[in-house]
């Protein structure tokens, strides 16, 4: 592998931007009307971050785990794998994250929302709402078909941003849950970058923002809720 320099990053892209964005159009068409369910789940999660029973953290984690599994299968294996040989590996990453969310959040109950919202927590909730409502509109604003919307719960990018938002909004930063979503921010950013997509920097910037806030939060333990 001594001559990798001979490649430009764009030489590794194996599909055209047109094919990539068409994927979401076909995906949405085949999923409809399941998007209503995933979006409803998103609204439910948003509500649960502010109030609800004491086990709502477990519930949120369980729903997120299910969504990550759904994206692994429905998007990566069933769709993206047709045009990208790396998709099965991405699917595997999403399955691992689903397991982590299930174990750390749903089973062990380490994701809680009992404390007062710190700045970091508020940023997290804002990020989640951004993923749910505004991020899907980015493509439309850039002139893409509205039925190619990338939606929280079915498309990877807003699902990852939403998850990062929730993880920031929780009482404690769980780094083991941040690793794979942050990695995805870099991977999808690189893909969009070599596709010359105008929004290429969005996901890496979100990833960076989350890591900065998470680090700041971890380093100031007095803000943490000591309830678990």
């Amino acid at each position: 592998m001594s001559e990798w320099w001979a490649y430009q990053p764009s030489d590794l892209l194996m599909f055209s931007p047109q094919t990539y964005y068409r994927l979401f159009e076909l995906y949405n068409t085949s999923l409809w009307p399941a998007q209503i369910l995933t979006l409803a789940a998103g609204v439910g999660i948003a509500a649960l971050t502010t109030r609800g029973p004491h086990w709502r953290g477990r519930l949120i984690a369980a729903v997120l785990a299910f969504i990550w599994l759904f994206v692994a299968w429905g998007y990566f294996i069933d769709r993206y794998a047709a045009i990208n040989l790396a998709a099965p590996y991405f699917a595997l990453g999403f399955v691992v994250q689903a397991i982590l969310l299930a174990v750390v959040g749903a089973i062990l109950g380490h994701i809680t929302f009992e404390g007062a919202k710190t700045l970091t927590g508020k940023v997290g909730v804002a990020l989640f709402l951004f993923a749910l409502v505004f991020q899907p509109l980015v493509g439309v604003l850039l002139g893409r078909e509205w039925f190619g919307l990338e939606l929280f719960g079915s498309a990877p990018d807003p699902t990852v941003v939403g998850t990062l938002g929730i993880l920031l909004a929780a009482d404690r930063i769980r780094w083991e849950l941040l690793v794979l979503p942050a990695l995805w921010c870099a991977i999808t950013g690189a893909t969009l970058w070599v596709m010359n997509s105008p929004e290429a920097l969005l996901m890496p910037l979100v990833g960076l923002l989350v890591l900065v806030f998470a680090a700041q939060r971890s380093l100031s333990p007095r803000h943490e809720y000591a309830g678990d």
Binding site: L13, M14, F15, S16, Q18, T19, R22, L23, L26, R79, A82, I83
Partner: peptide, 13 residues
Amino acid sequence: SWITFNVGDDPEA
């Protein structure tokens, strides 16, 4: 056919 024919199951493409 690199990239150009990699259109997956998009019927139009």
